[in-house]
Nucleic acid binder design. Structure first.
Length: 528
RNA sequence: GUCAGAGUAGCUCAGUGGUAGAGCAGAGGACUCAUAAGCCUUUGGUCGGGAGUUCAAAUCUCCCCUCUGGCACCA
């Protein structure tokens, strides 16, 4: 099992539309967790991607008169471009039209079919010709009718293949009861327990006849059908992790070693796709495939970004947030900082443009950027940028600053291990505020005027530079580019094998020469 | 309808039985190394509404209101 390497995945996004802020948040959370774990000395593998199959893609492509693959590719490119803008560094890219993925899906389906886990049955129900789908009671309006949005609704019979989901529900109930950490945060786990108790377990329809849907993976035991959604999209978590790589060798280049990665430490998903897809179908699928209880993945369920005032962001309300626009104004790191600091992992948050302006101006430009700038400038002005590490002076102000930074690695680690990125950032920013207070209380500009205070001035300047270096290390998972630029201005590089949890005061060597300071986060012109 | 979550200062949120908190915004002040930044002080709240339990409730119980998500053939 994957004890050495942490395996972090995200949901794969549906390529029917362009990425929005919710997509960006989820991928960013995965990126930040992965980067942090690496900085703590662990190996980590970050998988994300796109779900390219499905009826909506087929329909949208038909509307435009282009092949489905071309339509999916075009939207896929939008996601790839956005993730580049946001500065994501993922190790694996799960695009469901990948030949290896398709082959693995088919092998899994054949195996389950041979084991009598999949059977054929006829479903009779109400069918919307316009939407090309069967309707359930949920689609009925308040009068109990199917509204005009469904067009002509007729009764129809259709043959399909079904997966024996219901057979495994008792196992899942027991598994969930025995593994309270299956879902994070805990209240989502309660939701799952209640859902399992209440719902009637029925089997899962896993195909569509080709007459209705062609844009999918053909099932191996009946060429008249394609698999749809579940045994396609969910399988990405293992097919792109190298599952069955030794037996299925269609296109295995670049795939990781499954035994090293699995089980996933965190499937990062939104609260909307937890039940039933990720918390019911997926563990049962794995169980049916022969995965043991200790080989089950863990779910990390995040909330939604809402509008100011809590209304949801949606196309129809015209209040969608385009990540690219915010990146253009605040930089990738500006948006990354806001998204990570303004949401408590697992809960909903309101996306607020005046808050992101304030966060940029106060937290980034003021507290952090200005602090670096004033620190470098004073060293340059008073000591020609030359640091003296062991000057013969110490006092409570110095000690307080050192204590704050010496305690930071453990504090950050505790929060990051619980995925509470916003608390980790808060801890780091408390130390930055302390640095600014330290400058005021030490008043280097006064020390510089008094030759008797020379040693003290050296220690103050060293403390500031050292603090900035350590801060650069700690913010790197959330703001990698800013971290790099701070170190560049400090004219310093950390040893590649330095672990976040091993950081101790005194990393900058005696006699180190600092670089030139330039604003990290320039003041922004007010919006019109 | 039902399950879960949320409702606390202008804003964003901590706070699960013991005198209501933080950051930001607002107000006042001192300083000058710095991006008019940063520092110090400070105004501000019937804790969604109602009832109950308790010596004591933001916190526990019940009812109600508003918002978010799920409810098993959307992904």
């Amino acid at each position: 099992m994957g004890q050495d390497t942490l395996f972090i995945t995200t949901a794969i996004d549906y390529t029917n539309s362009a990425p929005h802020i919710g997509h960006a948040y989820e991928k960013l959370l995965a990126d930040v967790i992965t980067r942090y774990q690496r900085s703590a000395g662990k190996k980590a593998y970050f998988l994300t991607g796109v779900d390219q199959h499905g009826q909506k893609v087929q329909q949208s492509a038909e509307l435009e008169g282009i092949p489905a693959q071309e339509f999916a590719d075009r939207n896929t490119a939008k996601f790839v471009e956005m993730w580049k803008l946001l500065g994501l560094e993922y190790n694996g890219w799960a695009a469901t039209t990948h030949p290896q993925h398709k082959a693995v899906v088919q092998v899994i389906l054949q195996k389950l079919f041979d084991q009598d886990q999949i059977y054929k049955a006829t479903h009779t129900g109400y069918y919307s010709v316009r939407q090309e789908q069967f309707l359930t009671d949920k689609e009925r309006n308040e009068e109990g009718e199917f509204g005009s949005e469904w067009g002509e609704v007729e009764e129809r019979k259709e043959e399909n293949y079904y997966f024996k989901l219901s057979e495994h529900v008792p196992w899942l109930k027991a598994f969930v009861a025995d593994h309270p950490d299956f879902v994070y945060p805990a209240f989502r786990g309660k939701e799952l327990v209640n859902a399992l108790d209440k719902a009637d377990a029925i089997d899962l329809c896993i195909t569509r006849p080709k007459s209705r849907l062609e844009w999918g993976i053909e099932i191996p035991f009946d060429t008249g059908f394609v698999t749809f959604v579940w045994f396609d999209a969910l399988i990405n978590y293992i097919s792109f992790a190298g599952y069955l790589k030794d037996q299925v060798q269609v296109a295995t280049e670049g795939l990781p070693d499954f035994a090293e990665l699995w089980p996933a430490n965190a499937h990062i998903i939104g609260k909307d796709i937890m039940i039933p897809a990720h918390a019911v179908y997926w563990p049962i699928m794995l169980h049916a495939m022969g995965f043991a209880d200790e080989e089950m993945p863990k779910l990390l369920v995040h909330g939604f970004w809402n509008d100011k005032g809590g209304a949801k962001l949606s196309k129809s309300l015209g209040n969608v947030i385009d990540p690219a626009e915010r990146i253009e104004r605040f930089g990738a790191d500006g948006l990354r900082y806001y998204l990570m600091s303004a949401m408590a992992t697992g809960k909903d948050a309101d996306f607020n443009d005046s808050r992101i302006e304030e966060a940029y101006a106060h937290d980034l430009a003021g507290n952090l950027g200005n602090l670096l700038n004033r620190s470098l400038n004073m060293s340059k002005r008073y000591r020609a940028s030359l640091l003296k590490k062991d000057a013969d002076y110490d006092d409570d102000l110095n000690r307080e600053l050192r204590d704050s930074f010496n305690k930071l690695p453990a504090a950050v680690a505790a929060h990051m291990e619980n995925y509470q990125v916003h608390f980790a950032l808060e801890e780091i920013w408390k130390s930055l505020t302390l640095c600014n207070q330290f400058v005021e209380h030490s008043a280097p500009w006064k020390l510089a005027k008094d030759e008797a205070e020379a040693n003290r001035l050296d220690t103050v300047l060293y403390h500031l530079a050292e603090a900035m270096a350590q801060a650069a290390f700690h913010i790197a998972p959330v703001m990698p580019e800013t971290s790099r630029r701070i170190l560049e201005q400090l004219n310093f590089e950390f040893p590649a094998d330095l672990k976040a949890t091993d950081i101790k005061w005194g990393i900058l060597p005696d006699g180190h020469t600092l670089g030139e300071g330039t604003p990290l986060f320039p003041r922004l012109e007010p919006l019109p």
